[in-house]
């Protein structure tokens, strides 16, 4: 383990990533600027099809909105959970942490399936509504945007909760005591002391949730169904059903670019807020 030769240990991963990660992505970019998947001729057709088509633009905007709504919904529930975790004793702390990790370890397909059972015509919510007399016939929840957002709230919540818990766990309890004993109300202490310190976790969580919800193909297609149009389903459709690979590539890159732009904006926002 000589200091000067140790860099060679990183070589296998660097080579593997160049071959199996970087090269495919470059081919993806190349294909989007070609007439067909064999890269016979350069062409802007795929990008015209992607960006010049109002249906595709609508799908893109729907996808970005879905990601944003998932961030709002997960924040609304994960922030109180993180605060409770901060105030809780070791036993409750452990329970909250396990609750956050358990969904993460049950596959996305299982989590999506559980929401079919909950949102379906004879599912948990409709049974409860009819039993309590709030509804006389089943309410359509599957294949609606609110249903999909509710499902994504659970499916993506660990990605918000774990970074938040990591950030709030580092907050020194003495700071809170100081704020409160100086006469700060609970709300004021949360806003002025806890929120600024938890912000890096919030930004990290928002980035992960946005990226994951916007590209959650299985949840979108199974719970959203055919009536709601999102870009990941269009990518799959173009690649595996229509076999128009240049258009599929242009769509995938549009999705990737939008997600990376939002992630970049969020990280700038987090940095700006910390300096303010």
């Amino acid at each position: 383990m000589q200091e000067n030769g140790v860099w060679r240990l990183a070589l296998p991963l660097a080579l593997a990533q160049a071959l199996f990660f970087l090269a495919p992505l470059m081919l993806l970019v190349g294909t989007s600027f070609a007439t067909d998947e064999n890269l016979t001729q350069a062409s802007l057709r795929a990008w015209r099809d992607m960006l010049g088509d109002s249906f595709n633009i609508m799908s893109l905007l729907n996808t970005l909105r879905l990601g944003a709504l998932a961030v709002v919904a997960t924040t609304l529930l994960a922030v109180p959970l993180a605060l409770l975790h901060m105030a809780a004793g070791p036993r409750l702390k452990r329970i909250i942490l396990l609750a956050a990790i358990l969904p993460l370890l049950t596959s996305v397909v299982v989590r999506t399936f559980s929401w079919i059972v909950i949102l379906g015509r004879e599912g948990v919510i409709n049974s409860a509504l009819i039993w309590s007399g709030l509804a006389t016939s089943p309410v359509a929840l599957l294949q609606t945007e609110p249903g999909l957002i509710l499902a994504l709230t659970q499916i993506e919540m660990p990605l918000m909760l774990l970074p938040l818990i990591a950030a709030t766990a580092r907050i020194d309890p003495a700071l809170l005591d100081a704020s409160v004993s100086l006469g700060g109300s609970l709300l004021r202490t949360l806003r002025r002391v806890v929120l600024p310190l938890a912000l890096p976790g919030l930004v990290a969580g928002a980035t992960l949730v946005f990226a994951s919800a916007a590209t959650a193909f299985i949840s979108q297609s199974v719970i959203g169904g055919g009536r709601l149009n999102y870009l990941p389903a269009q990518v799959w459709q173009q690649a595996m059903v229509v076999f128009d690979w240049p258009v599929a590539a242009a769509m995938a890159l549009t999705l990737m670019g939008s997600v990376l732009m939002v992630a970049g904006a969020l990280s700038l926002l987090g940095r700006g807020a910390r300096h303010a």
Binding site: L27, A249, A252
Partner: peptide, 14 residues
């Protein structure tokens, strides 16, 4: 940070 679906498609093409 890269959407998996873009990488999946890229791998298929590659």
């Amino acid at each position: 940070v890269l959407p998996g679906i873009a990488f999946g498609l890229a791998s298929l093409m590659f």
